[in-house]
Design a protein around this nucleic acid. Structure first.
Length: 295
DNA sequence: AACTCGTGGGC
DNA sequence: TGCCCAAGAGT
């Protein structure tokens, strides 16, 4: 049994079971696909769907976004989370105009050089928008490969070069088919080979899965937990930015005092937002980046 | 390498 | 309820 049989089985399943997502429709351009990939970084599909439509209706091409202010990008981002992504996408649009005549490049190195575009997103665009043969490794694929190939209950905590190598080995030779296999692996990881309760009975790879063959060994002991969200700077940043998002123009600092009682933490969170370029001080007031009409 | 960075829904 | 997690990137 060759490894490409895994891909073949995944593609057959994908053809019958893939979700009907708008950025997968034939003829969708590289820019809409890039926007979807950035929005999908750590944000569930159901919340991305309406935001993606609204975003592309307003900014159908990179030049349109680049011509608008970062503040508007941050507002349109809404509550998708991690608003730095909105800022990076705006920077990315500017870079596309400056370096690539307003188009999304097909070259992997050029994609990787774009703001907010990392190893996953660059390969996703190269594969899904341009049909090139690159391993597209997200958390779903890492988990699926760890289980089906390595026989481990889960992938390691961080993406490694080895993940790219292991996934590349599964890809069919034909570029377009390889891209389809990547989409299929991702979809299998999202719908079947899930983190919490994998549905092996519905999995087209079950008969070839090393983890299942080993009796689905449990993951090793307690993994160290990240800090809880409640009470963190991230929560405070979120509250501060929510006020700025829903306000056009300057917000007095004492208006922001209302969202969090702890002066020190609130100041630290605001300083972080400024440091990230999401917020600017204008005199004694705060505005979203670029949201100050100078005239 | 480990840590930061939002948000909301499922169980 | 509290906890986990969802198509990562940047430092």
């Amino acid at each position: 049994m060759s490894k490409t049989q895994l891909a073949a089985a995944a593609i057959r399943w994908y053809d019958e079971n893939a979700r009907d997502l708008p950025w997968r429709e034939p003829g969708v351009g590289a820019w809409p696909i890039l926007v979807s990939e950035v929005m999908l970084q750590q944000t569930p599909v159901v919340r991305v769907l309406p935001a993606w439509r609204a975003w592309l209706t307003r900014w159908p091409v990179p030049a349109a976004l680049a011509a608008d202010t970062p503040a508007e990008a941050i507002r349109m981002w809404g509550r998708l989370g991690y608003p730095r992504r909105a800022l990076r996408l705006h920077e990315c649009a500017s870079a596309l105009v400056e370096r690539h005549d307003g188009a999304v490049p097909a070259d992997l190195e050029q994609l990787l050089a774009l703001p907010g575009v990392g190893s996953y997103t660059a390969r996703a665009v190269a594969a899904f928008a341009y049909g090139q043969r690159y391993p597209v490794v997200d958390t779903n694929v890492r988990r699926l490969v760890a289980r089906a190939v390595a026989g481990e209950p889960d992938a390691g905590p961080a993406t490694r070069p080895a993940d790219l190598v292991a996934t590349e080995a599964l890809l069919p030779a034909h570029p377009g088919t390889a891209a389809r296999a990547s989409a299929a692996f991702m979809e299998l990881g999202a719908l079947i080979c899930t983190a919490r309760s994998p549905r092996c009975v519905d999995c087209p790879l079950a008969t070839r899965c090393a983890w299942r063959a080993s009796g689905r060994t449990a993951p090793p002991g307690p993994t160290r937990r990240p800090q809880r969200y409640a009470g963190t700077d991230r929560q405070v940043r979120g509250k501060l930015l929510a006020v700025l998002r829903e306000t056009t123009g300057p917000v007095p600092r004492d208006r922001l005092d209302l969202v969090w009682a702890d002066d020190l933490q609130r100041s630290r969170a605001l300083a972080g937002l400024i440091e990230d370029g999401l917020v600017e001080m204008v005199g004694d007031t705060c505005v979203l980046a670029g949201d100050h009409a100078v005239d």
